[in-house]
């Protein structure tokens, strides 16, 4: 990340709160030009000023991982980054994963597998998995575990998340793959 804008550059408004600052960056390929209070995190700018609520707010402490986005292609916790730090960067959120109506193979696999249960942590897992698969098209289960360990899932239980990432990886490698069937006794 670039160095933050020095605080001395921030002028004070009359009500005692710092005046808004302007930042220009791209979000999901589109240039944006936003005016916001300089203390705002990238998470707040995305959700409040750009209305991109797919990026979730879980703890605002960098602990739960729900706010992961990609900045210049790397996973970053948006609650730990100032919005001003996005200046000149390329930000990708879950809203930018699909190609128009066509879902990304990771999205397809998450939906198909039920890897999104309540769905609140899902965007962060998918974006992190996207970076993993770009770098490593055939990750082992342990490599997936490691790569996804920055986000907490409280309800699905990770297993279907791993399986979905493995399914997406296989499809992205051009293999024919379908979801695993679990045994139901008596069938």
């Amino acid at each position: 990340m670039s160095a933050p804008v020095p605080l001395t550059h921030i002028t004070r408004a009359r009500n005692g709160r710092p005046a808004k600052r302007r930042a220009q960056f791209t979000v999901n390929g589109e240039p944006v030009d936003v005016l916001f209070a300089p203390h705002k995190t990238l998470l707040e700018v995305l959700r409040e000023d750009l209305n991109l609520t797919g990026t979730k707010h879980g703890c605002e402490l960098g602990e739960c991982g729900a706010c992961a986005v990609l900045v210049d292609g790397e996973p970053v916790l948006a609650c730990l980054v100032l919005g001003l730090d996005a200046e000149g960067r390329d930000v990708t959120t879950v809203e930018g994963m699909a190609d128009g109506p066509a879902l990304h193979p990771i999205q397809e696999a998450f939906a198909q597998y039920g890897a999104a249960q309540c769905g609140y942590c899902t965007p962060s897992f998918m974006l992190t998995a996207q970076v993993l698969l770009e770098k490593n098209p055939s990750p082992s289960r342990d490599e997936i575990r490691e790569a996804l360990s920055s986000s907490i899932c409280r309800c699905t239980g990770y297993v279907k998340i791993y399986e979905a990432v493995e399914l997406a990886a296989a499809r992205m490698r051009g293999e024919e793959a379908d979801i695993l069937e679990e045994a139901i006794y008596g069938r």
Binding site: G54, V94, E95, Q107, F110, A111, A116, G119, P123, M126
Partner: peptide
């Protein structure tokens, strides 16, 4: 609702 959940919608 899988699609809604994986697109952030």
């Amino acid at each position: 609702d899988g699609r809604l959940k994986v697109t952030g919608a």
